Structures are given as C-alpha cells and as structure tokens.
Lab assay of single mutants.
Amino acid sequence: ATNIVSKVKWYNSTKNFGFIEQDNGGKDVFVHKSAVDAAGLHSLEEGQDVIFDLEEKQGKAYAVNLRIK
C-alpha cells in the first residue's frame, strides 16, 4: 500500500524505532530510524501526522518512504 496517512503512536529515538497507528484499525506499523533518516528527520513525535508506504518483509509490516503530512 502507498501514501497511507496516519499518526505516530510512539517513537523512541534512543532505541531507534517506533510504531505508527493504522487508521483502518489494522496492526501498528513498525518504523525504523533508517526510514526517519531517509525522510531527513531527526525523530518523530507522538501524534505526528505522517504519510508512508507499507512494505512487508518476512511477514512484518514496515513503514518506508516516510514523510510529514
């Protein structure tokens, strides 16, 4: 899926990962520091509106092509 609009559930800049809620009630989506860095960001804030693409690797959903709404 591409261009999903949602909100950051939480992000831990010390552990370099977090999760984004899915508005459709699906499972929370993992977001890694590499996606945050690629977006030119230093961190994410809880409740922040984001747009991302969903990529599945080894049966897990990852946020990629992250951008701020």
Rank of each mutant, 00 (worst) to 15 (best):
A1I: 13
A1Q: 13
A1P: 10
A1V: 12
T2L: 13
T2G: 07
T2V: 13
T2R: 14
N3R: 08
N3C: 11
N3D: 11
N3M: 08
N3P: 07
I4P: 05
I4S: 06
I4E: 04
I4N: 07
I4K: 09
V5Y: 12
V5G: 08
S6K: 04
S6P: 02
S6Y: 07
S6G: 15
S6V: 04
S6C: 08
K7V: 09
K7G: 02
K7I: 07
K7E: 01
K7H: 10
V8I: 09
V8C: 03
V8Q: 02
V8A: 02
V8R: 01
K9L: 07
K9P: 00
K9A: 04
K9N: 01
K9E: 00
K9F: 03
K9H: 06
K9Q: 03
W10F: 10
W10N: 01
W10Y: 07
W10V: 01
W10T: 02
W10Q: 02
Y11N: 00
Y11C: 03
Y11H: 00
Y11V: 02
Y11A: 00
Y11P: 00
Y11T: 00
Y11L: 00
Y11D: 01
N12I: 07
N12L: 07
N12A: 07
N12E: 05
N12G: 05
S13P: 14
S13V: 13
S13L: 11
S13Q: 12
T14K: 14
T14S: 13
T14I: 13
T14E: 12
K15G: 05
K15Y: 11
K15A: 08
K15Q: 07
K15C: 10
N16D: 04
N16G: 15
N16E: 09
N16P: 02
F17I: 03
F17Y: 15
G18I: 03
G18T: 03
G18Q: 01
G18M: 02
G18K: 02
F19S: 02
F19A: 02
F19E: 01
I20F: 09
I20T: 01
I20D: 01
I20M: 08
E21D: 08
E21Q: 14
E21I: 15
E21M: 15
E21K: 14
E21N: 11
Q22Y: 15
Q22F: 14
D23R: 15
D23S: 15
D23N: 14
D23V: 15
N24Y: 11
N24T: 10
N24S: 11
N24E: 10
N24R: 11
N24D: 11
G25L: 08
G25Q: 09
G25Y: 09
G25K: 09
G25F: 09
G25H: 09
G26N: 10
G26V: 09
G26I: 09
G26A: 11
K27M: 10
K27W: 09
K27Y: 09
K27D: 09
K27F: 10
K27C: 10
K27N: 10
K27T: 09
K27I: 09
D28V: 05
D28P: 07
D28H: 06
D28M: 08
D28K: 04
D28R: 04
D28T: 05
D28L: 07
V29P: 01
V29M: 04
V29T: 06
V29W: 08
V29Y: 12
F30N: 00
F30R: 02
V31I: 10
V31N: 01
V31S: 00
V31D: 00
H32K: 03
H32M: 05
H32D: 04
H32R: 04
H32T: 05
K33V: 08
K33Y: 08
K33W: 10
K33A: 10
S34I: 10
S34Y: 09
S34D: 07
S34F: 11
A35I: 07
A35K: 04
A35F: 05
A35H: 06
V36K: 03
V36Q: 00
V36C: 03
D37K: 14
D37R: 14
D37T: 14
D37F: 14
D37V: 15
D37N: 14
D37L: 15
D37C: 15
A38H: 08
A38V: 08
A38C: 09
A38T: 08
A38Y: 08
A38S: 09
A39N: 04
A39Q: 03
A39I: 08
A39M: 06
G40Y: 06
G40M: 07
G40D: 06
G40W: 05
G40C: 09
L41Q: 06
L41W: 11
L41R: 05
L41T: 04
H42Q: 12
H42I: 12
H42E: 12
H42V: 13
H42F: 13
H42L: 13
H42Y: 12
H42M: 12
S43N: 12
S43E: 11
S43L: 11
S43V: 11
S43K: 12
S43A: 11
S43M: 11
L44Q: 01
L44H: 01
L44D: 00
E45S: 13
E45C: 14
E45T: 13
E45A: 12
E45D: 10
E46S: 15
E46H: 14
E46F: 10
E46V: 14
E46N: 13
E46M: 14
E46C: 13
G47Q: 06
G47M: 05
G47W: 05
Q48V: 09
Q48Y: 06
Q48C: 09
Q48A: 09
Q48G: 04
D49S: 13
D49C: 15
D49V: 15
D49G: 12
D49F: 15
D49Y: 15
V50H: 01
V50N: 00
V50M: 05
V50A: 02
I51P: 00
I51H: 05
I51V: 11
I51C: 10
I51G: 04
F52Q: 01
F52E: 00
F52H: 03
D53H: 04
D53C: 04
D53P: 00
D53M: 04
D53T: 06
D53L: 04
E55C: 14
E55Q: 11
E55I: 14
E55A: 12
E55F: 14
E55G: 06
E56P: 04
E56T: 14
E56Y: 15
E56N: 11
E56H: 14
E56V: 15
E56D: 08
E56L: 14
K57Y: 13
K57I: 11
Q58I: 07
Q58F: 14
Q58M: 13
Q58D: 15
G59F: 05
G59M: 05
G59K: 06
K60W: 11
K60E: 06
K60I: 08
K60Y: 11
K60M: 10
K60P: 04
A61S: 13
A61K: 14
A61V: 14
A61I: 15
A61H: 12
Y62V: 07
Y62R: 09
A63P: 02
A63E: 03
A63S: 02
A63Q: 02
V64E: 04
V64R: 07
V64K: 09
V64G: 04
N65Q: 04
N65C: 06
N65F: 04
N65G: 03
L66P: 00
L66C: 03
L66Y: 00
L66I: 12
R67G: 03
R67L: 05
R67M: 05
R67V: 07
I68T: 11
I68H: 06
I68W: 07
I68A: 09
I68C: 08
I68L: 13
I68M: 10
K69Y: 14
K69N: 12
K69L: 15
K69R: 12
